[in-house]
Structures are given as C-alpha cells and as structure tokens.
C-alpha cells in the first residue's frame, strides 16, 4: 500500500434510496472515510455509462452507483435497467483494464445508513490496497 495514498471515489446516488441512506448515515453520525464525492441523481437508471467512464478519466479511483433495492425503485422499474446496463458495462470496463474492484453497483435503501457507511469504508480500503490507477 502506498503511504498517504487517498483514493478518490465518485458516488452516483439515487435521490430516494442511496442519497437518503447517506443522509441517514449523517444524521446517525456514523463516520466513514472522506474519500467519496457524491453526485445526486434522481434514479440510478439515470446514470449514463459515459458519466462512469468520464469519472474514471478524470481521476476517480473507484465509482459507486447506489440505487434502491430491486423492487423498491421510486420510479418502479428504473433500477432494473441499472442492473442490466451495468451488469454488462462492469465486465466491459474490466476487459479494458479497469480492475473490477474499482466499480460497484449497490442497493442501499433510505434506512440503510449503516450499510452505506460500511460500503464507503470497505470500498475505500479496497481501493487503497489496489493503489492508484494507471493513466490512459
């Protein structure tokens, strides 16, 4: 592990679950590493793979998409599309040389503040072990 290396995570969080879960982590004062930068989206289904790719290009060491659990999407079916899209895009990124550990799609409900904080902690830790990304 590189001394002092702080990985950077971009988190695309859906407004209703992922973002609300992160808010709950805050109101519950559950601490986690300060490595994540959150971009609020209405639905995980809003996340265009282009945004994920651009995040990596702009220096993100890891990208997280957090949406409602399948079956609980605020927009009824948005996250089912998220699941399909990134089930395909994730291995494609890996195929292009972006380690699979660097990308995560997770389901975090509005009541899962603890899960969110654990997620950020474990993701940060894993990325720190992996070290910085190679530049394009």
């Amino acid at each position: 592990m590189i001394e002092g290396y702080q990985p950077k995570i971009i988190g695309f969080l859906c407004n209703w679950c992922g973002y609300a879960g992160a808010d709950l982590a805050g109101t519950s004062r559950i601490t986690y590493p300060a490595n994540i930068r959150v971009i609020r989206v209405p639905c995980s289904g809003r996340v265009d793979p282009l945004l994920v790719l651009k995040s990596f290009q702009r220096g993100a060491d890891g990208v997280l998409i957090a949406g409602c659990h399948p079956g609980e999407c605020h927009y009824v079916e948005g996250n089912y599309y998220t699941r399909r899209r990134f089930a395909l895009f994730h291995p494609f990124l890996e195929y292009l040389g972006i380690e699979k550990e660097r990308f995560r799609v997770e389901w975090v409900s509005a009541s899962e503040g603890k899960k969110f904080s654990k997620l950020v902690s474990s993701f940060t830790e894993e990325l720190a072990k992996l070290g910085p990304r190679r530049e394009a």
Partner: peptide
C-alpha cells in the same frame, strides 16, 4: 452542497 449529512457529521474529528 451537502456539507452536513455527507461531510461534517460523518467526518467529525478530521
């Protein structure tokens, strides 16, 4: 910019 729930409250002490 969410400086409370996403920042000060979860990174207190740092």
């Amino acid at each position: 910019a969410n400086l409370r729930e996403h920042c000060s409250w979860v990174h207190s002490g740092d």
